[in-house]
Simulated assay, not measured.
Amino acid sequence: GVAYASTKTVTNKQGTEIPVMHACGHDFHMTTWLAVAGFMNAYRKHWQGTLVFIAQPAEEKAAGAKAMLADGLYTRFPKPDYALALHVNSKLPAGTVGYCAGSALAKIDLLDITVKGKGGHGGMPNFSKDPIVLSAQLIMALQTIVSREVNPAEPAVLTIGSIHGGSNSNTIPSEVSLGLTIRSLNDSVQAAMIKSIQRMANGIAHAAGLEEKDFPVIQLRNESSPLVYNDPVLSRRIGAVFQEKLGKERVQELQPEMYGEDFGMYRQTEPPLPTLIYSVGTVGTGPFVSTHSPLYLPTLDPALETGIKSLTWALLDLLKPAKK
């Protein structure tokens, strides 16, 4: 690995020590943030207005923006006219930027499902209700929500990211835990998907002969993120700045993606605050590696310079002195 590869470990909620890293580029983001803040402070005479830099934690758990807004971000400090952010993009070449006007990033909900059963001996499954088998049936059934229940014209994703159950190969456990995420660009689609998950889970339990008290327990985590909507007028304005400074060939208009960001919470004012989160390319010459992979490594040269300059150009445009 690289010299600055993370060696940090933490203990997760299950009590297991696990390695951690900035697999979504947040060290890149904050390095850019610090450099731009330093430049804007040093060259204060070249712009006018009030500039607020938000050092927000806990984006990955969708907790940071919510906590800062609840703590009075827009009342204890000047309420902005615009909000800008950038994020690394593991599909764009280093030295480029991209943006998506309108609906840009998905609304996200995270759910935990506890599939109950009746534990027993692996050699006598007829005396048990096997939650591993029920979980397998549920996992396959849930795949039909997007393919058979959601309008094909509506982007939607359902991903089961974890399954945990059992402790021994010859023992049928009493329960299995599933963790999943659902994502869409539409509140009604999101609500319908949650209802479908509940219906299918209950149906599989009923078909297995379980009593209602032993039907799966579905919990919606307090880690939801709203749709991220880039104001079209602001997007086109800043996109034009990027094209002027970088050249049109290094600025891409992107399609909506099913990643999530709690940056969307900053827009939830009345009237809605114009916001824009754009992408900074980080891909070099190696094979594709997605963010959230332990192998993700941004190509710092020229990606970091592009990130710093692009955000600085955007701020200088929005804060340029009025003509006398």
Rank of each mutant, 00 (worst) to 15 (best):
Thr312Ser: 14
Lys195Arg: 12
Leu295Thr: 06
Gln268Asp: 15
Gly264Leu: 14
Lys309Tyr: 13
Ile277Ala: 04
Asp262Ile: 00
Glu211Asp: 13
Ser224Thr: 05
Asp262Glu: 13
Glu257Val: 09
Gln268Val: 03
Met200Thr: 00
Ala205Tyr: 14
Ala314Trp: 00
Leu315Arg: 05
Tyr229Glu: 09
Leu295Ile: 01
Thr299Met: 14
Glu244Lys: 14
Ala205Trp: 14
Asn222Gln: 10
Ala208Pro: 07
His206Ser: 10
Arg221Thr: 05
Lys245Phe: 05
Ala207Pro: 07
His292Gly: 09
Pro287Met: 03
Leu273Tyr: 10
Leu300Gln: 10
Pro256Ala: 13
Ser290Trp: 08
Pro302Phe: 11
Asn222Lys: 07
Thr306Phe: 07
Pro321Ile: 10
Pro294Asp: 14
Phe288Val: 02
Glu305Cys: 10
Ile197Ser: 09
Gly264Thr: 13
Thr291Met: 15
Ala314Leu: 02
Glu257Gly: 08
Arg250Met: 03
Asp214Ile: 01
Glu244Tyr: 13
Asp317Lys: 08
Pro232Val: 09
Leu234Trp: 12
Leu304Asn: 05
Pro298Arg: 08
Val228Arg: 06
Ala192Gly: 12
Leu297Ala: 11
Met200Lys: 13
Lys245Gln: 09
Ile194Gln: 15
His206Arg: 12
Gly209Lys: 11
Ala303Asp: 04
Gly247Ser: 08
Glu257Trp: 11
Ser310Phe: 14
Val217Gly: 05
Leu273Lys: 09
Ala201Thr: 02
Met193Trp: 09
Ile277Lys: 13
Leu300Glu: 15
Ser290Gln: 11
Leu227Met: 15
Pro271Val: 04
Met265Cys: 10
Leu316Gly: 01
Glu223Gly: 03
Ser196His: 15
Arg237Asp: 06
Thr312Phe: 08
Glu253Val: 13
Gly307Trp: 04
Tyr266Pro: 02
Phe242Ser: 01
Ser235Ile: 12
Gln219Asn: 04
Tyr278Trp: 12
Gln255Phe: 00
Leu297Tyr: 11
Lys213His: 14
Ser235Gly: 10
Phe288Pro: 02
Pro294Gln: 08
Val241Pro: 04
Trp313Ser: 03
Tyr259Glu: 08
Tyr229His: 12
Pro287Asp: 05
Gly247Pro: 03
Arg250Glu: 00
Thr282Met: 12
Pro287Glu: 09
Ile218Arg: 05
Tyr296Leu: 06
His206Ile: 07
Pro232Ser: 10
Glu244His: 11
Gln243Ile: 05
Lys248Phe: 00
Glu270Ser: 06
Glu249Leu: 01
Pro321Tyr: 13
Gly209Asp: 10
Val217Pro: 00
Pro216Asn: 14
Val283Phe: 06
Lys320Trp: 03
Ser225Trp: 07
Ala192Gln: 15
Glu249Ala: 07
Leu311Asp: 07
Tyr229Cys: 07
Phe215Val: 01
Val280Met: 12
Trp313Arg: 02
Asn222Val: 01
Gln255Ser: 02
Asn202Trp: 12
Leu318Val: 10
Val241His: 02
Pro216Arg: 15
Thr291Ser: 11
Ser293Lys: 14
Gln243Phe: 11
Ala240Gly: 03
Asn222Leu: 06
Leu295Ser: 07
Lys309Cys: 08
Val283Glu: 13
Glu305Thr: 09
Ala192Ile: 05
Gly209Ser: 07
Leu316Phe: 03
Ala314Pro: 03
Pro272Lys: 15
Asp214Glu: 06
Ile218Phe: 07
Pro294Ile: 11
Met193Gln: 04
Thr291Pro: 06
Glu305Trp: 14
Arg250Ala: 02
